[in-house]
Amino acid sequence: MPKIRRMSLTQELVDLCFRDETDPGPPPSWQPMTEEDYASLTDRLTQEVGDGPLWIFAYGSLIWKPGFDSIASRRATAFGWHRSFSLRIERGRGSPTQPGLMMVLSRGGRCDGVIYRVAGNEKRMQIEKALRREVSNRDSLTSMRWLPVRTEEGDTVRALTFWVGGNSQRLIRPLLPLHDVAPVLARACGHRGSCAEYLYNTVVHLAEFGIYDRNLWRLQELVAEEIKALHAQTPIREHA
């Protein structure tokens, strides 16, 4: 059994980050996807899969809230990529007055995640569901690709992956150091919840698959410190 690590970022600290926020709607600069766009993109990806299996690689929220249906899951590793909080958001888990940061895959290192297999007779349906969850505007299109990922058994499969590379105007380059990311995650909240909650859920659900991401672990420690400093006068309930 792997050693159980005790997180610094607790549910009680995450709860302190929540506040009611209204949905500001999409930024004026966005070019929203149309129904025709979704249909065309779904057709293209379905053709690219062909008769082979459809795997979708999850490294963040797709692990704990996929938005599509699957029939199997396996641990897998994408080499040459790593998780980074480098996508600026002003909606969802951030706001125009307090923008947040979401995870993407950036060049370098490795990323241990989970691949989900879609039923063979549902490939088109599940591709469209995944697209509607992950691709809301044309700005997102360049960040979607097929990645070769290696499973624990040693075989390599091709998996559809979202927010990997790309040239979105919302991507922050060069990458921010963890000490600069932590204050943002401790403060940002939108109508769908806080960035601290997003980090917490990701670390917790990765652990369920036995995955330990060193950078995320250090980041949750830094975010916990930030939240405690921000709410120094607020009593914090500890775990039993």
Rank of each mutant, 00 (worst) to 15 (best):
T10V: 13
Y116M: 14
G80W: 09
D23F: 11
S84N: 08
P174S: 04
I89M: 07
S8D: 14
I127Q: 05
L222P: 02
Y38N: 03
G108L: 08
Q169Y: 15
H179Y: 09
I115F: 08
N201Y: 09
V203E: 04
N167P: 10
V223M: 07
G94E: 02
Y116I: 12
L199Y: 03
S40Y: 10
L45Y: 05
L9D: 05
Q126G: 08
L13E: 01
N121T: 15
S143F: 07
P53F: 00
K228Q: 15
R75M: 10
L41S: 06
V135I: 15
V164K: 07
R110I: 14
D20T: 15
R117H: 08
A186W: 00
G67C: 06
S140V: 07
R6P: 12
I227C: 04
P99L: 00
A39Y: 00
G60Q: 03
R218V: 10
R88Q: 13
Q11S: 15
E238Q: 13
I89F: 11
V184D: 02
R124N: 12
G60N: 09
R145H: 09
I236N: 06
L160C: 05
G154S: 04
P177L: 03
F68V: 03
W146K: 01
Q233E: 10
E35A: 10
L87Q: 14
R6S: 13
Y200H: 11
T234R: 07
E35K: 10
P148G: 05
C111D: 06
T156R: 11
P96K: 00
S140K: 06
E21G: 08
T46S: 10
G108E: 07
G50H: 04
Y198V: 03
W55C: 00
W81L: 11
P53C: 03
D23C: 07
A72G: 05
G166E: 05
E48P: 05
G94T: 01
T77S: 14
W64I: 02
E152G: 13
G193H: 05
L199M: 11
G165V: 01
R133I: 01
A130Q: 05
I227M: 02
L206W: 01
Q220R: 10
D155K: 09
R150C: 06
Q47T: 12
I236C: 08
E197C: 08
A240R: 15
R173S: 13
L87K: 11
I71E: 10
G60R: 02
R110A: 14
H239K: 15
L45D: 03
P32F: 12
G190F: 00
